[in-house]
Design a protein around this nucleic acid. Structure first.
Lengths: 111, 111
DNA sequence: CGTGTAAGGAATTCTGACACG
DNA sequence: CGTGTAAGGAATTCTGACACG
């Protein structure tokens, strides 16, 4: 359960492959980075490395662009989505703490 | 359930990155291919592309090699493992067919 | 604003081969 | 057998810039 996600987020794909996967030109991919829509990592010598997540996000971006949505609008949408996810994550953590507390108070059950 | 596995098996990582990920030299990685221990795909211009699966297999191979296991022995072990997996897959498919038959004979339940 | 392109350089990858053992 | 290395070439990636609109 921890491992599958790491495949998705590991930044290991170079820009040429991302271009093939998304149908976007390298120019476009670099431009979307400039506009903060994606954040690849860099290899030792400075080559961009992308994750499968990035690839999926780029496909979403490509769809929006085809609909004529501007990059700054797409950025806002992505931020909103991220906010929701963060909230969901926070709620899960709080729930986790509650569960921990509950388990603690039941640490020595009467059986 | 179908999607997570595809990340693991998608051949998208170039040899330089695989080298970083596994600690093996490119020479070693190419040699193991020559010995049929791995089967990368090729991009349009002939560059090798590996999956996360390949990376994990290479790490296994590296461990075996450190123990002094020869590549042909490693190949045999990998074949055995594959045979087991194939058997498991076949059994699952048979089970699937049985279930299908069962559902068919119950297609019009009396309710 | 979003994308194309030519420019020059540096790093990547490929193959076949010789080397050692 | 398994791995290193030098060799030469072709493809990749990078950045900064000019172009169009």
């Amino acid at each position: 359960m921890e491992n599958e996600a790491s495949y998705k987020n590991r930044k290991v794909i170079s820009i040429g492959t991302v271009s093939e996967l998304t149908g976007l030109t390298e120019r476009q991919i670099r431009y979307y980075e400039e506009r903060k829509l994606i954040s690849p990592e860099r290899s030792d010598r400075g080559n961009r490395k992308y994750s499968f997540m990035d690839v999926e996000r780029l496909i979403e971006i490509a769809n929006k662009r085809e609909e004529g949505v501007r990059t700054d609008e797409i950025l806002q949408e992505l931020k909103k989505k991220k906010k929701k996810e963060d909230t969901a994550t926070r709620n899960k953590m709080i729930q986790g703490q509650l569960n921990a507390r509950f388990n603690q108070s039941n640490r020595y059950p009467k059986k």
